[in-house]
């Protein structure tokens, strides 16, 4: 039985809160998650233990002390559940957002986060800040998104959400992006060069950070 009752859940919530303000997703707290789940199981076992002598005929008013203990156990389990759900939700929301933005999460994760405090060892030494479950989730969500997007090919659902003002925009190339085909011919996007191009052709590259839009507030 953990003496630091409910502290683990709080830790998850603090981490989730912090995540909301961070540009990158911090490492998955697999140790804390495991410990919180363990706490729930311990609480449940204790609850069973408390209930056992009454064989189903427990009367709360005759045993207020035990009733109280049971209630506290029960509420703590529920609280831990909420904390865990909230923690995972914040992270999965963030991952979805990155999927929509077209970030290649699974490949760019490698080595992006060097702050793993030992909890990464359980994941076969990988540097990923995602749990294996999260990686699976991202893979499946990307498929789902691609399927939904595929129904709206004319629209390009993941395109820019800024109202289009001009058909053509000035962009500067931040990273080499190779050659792209436009209806006005091929453009070779080499670093530091500048182009006047059709916005629809380069939206994706702007989102992915290859290009920077100029004169844009």
């Amino acid at each position: 039985m953990s003496q630091r009752f409910a502290e683990l859940g709080n830790k998850l919530i603090r981490d989730a809160k912090r995540t909301q303000n961070l540009p990158d997703l911090p490492s998955y707290q697999s140790e804390t998650v495991r410990a919180t789940v363990r706490e729930v199981r311990d609480l449940d076992r204790e609850l069973e233990h408390l209930k056992a002598p009454f064989a189903g005929s427990f009367d709360p008013s005759s045993e207020p002390a035990i009733a109280c203990a049971m209630l506290v156990n029960h509420l703590s389990m529920r609280r831990n559940k909420r904390c865990l759900l909230a923690y995972h939700r914040v992270r999965s929301d963030r991952l979805e957002e990155m999927c929509w933005k077209g970030v290649d999460i699974l490949n760019s994760e490698q080595g992006a986060d060097g702050r793993g405090r030992g909890e990464n060892e359980a994941q076969g030494g990988s540097k990923s800040s995602l749990s294996p479950e999260e990686e699976e989730y991202v893979r499946q969500y990307e498929d789902l998104l691609a399927a939904y997007k595929g129904q709206w090919t004319d629209i390009d659902l993941t395109g820019s959400l800024e109202p289009p003002k001009d058909l053509f925009i000035d962009v500067r190339v931040l990273k080499n992006a190779g050659e792209i085909q436009t209806e006005y011919g091929a453009i070779n996007l080499t670093k530091n060069s500048q182009f006047y191009v059709r916005q629809g052709d380069v939206d994706r590259l702007i989102q992915q950070g290859y290009l920077q839009r100029l004169g844009w507030t």
Binding site: T36, V37, V40, R41, M77, L84, L85, H88, E134, E136
Partner: peptide
């Protein structure tokens, strides 16, 4: 169903 599976495999399946 993705979310439920994700929660379940991450922690919920070991809950009471």
């Amino acid at each position: 169903s993705l979310i439920s599976t994700h929660y379940s495999t991450s922690f919920l399946s070991t809950f009471p």
